[in-house]
Amino acid sequence: MLKYTEDHEWLRAEGDEIVVGITRHASEQLGDVVFIELPEEGREVEAGEEIVVIESVKAASDITAPISGTITAVNSALADAPGGVNDDALAAWFFRIKPADGVSLDGFMDEAAYNELIG
């Protein structure tokens, strides 16, 4: 089951990792994405730290780490073809993170709460 952050990320638990992308709503707000800078694999990040840069035809925005942990993988194919975010935001994962304190998504929004957030 997907969970969501207030920064319009979707989170999916897989084993001892969390897969992170941005929501369809976010991709629609951004418009056509032309550049994505992903963090380095192995990097240790703090929750709230800006670790991804997204540039659309309109503007630049940042994606923050939803949780503290270690980046275990990044979707480099997405960096090569950033328009994939607009094609299918749920398939276009950004990075996998291994949480420092174990996998728990309890503090994040479920789909109903997220839908309420974006109105």
């Binding site: 418009g31 056509d32 032309v34 035809v57 309109k58 328009g83 607009n86």
Partner: peptide, 11 residues
């Protein structure tokens, strides 16, 4: 500022 086609495809 844009239509449903989107800025990239409109361009």
């Amino acid at each position: 500022v844009q239509y449903p086609m989107g800025v990239l495809n409109e361009h």
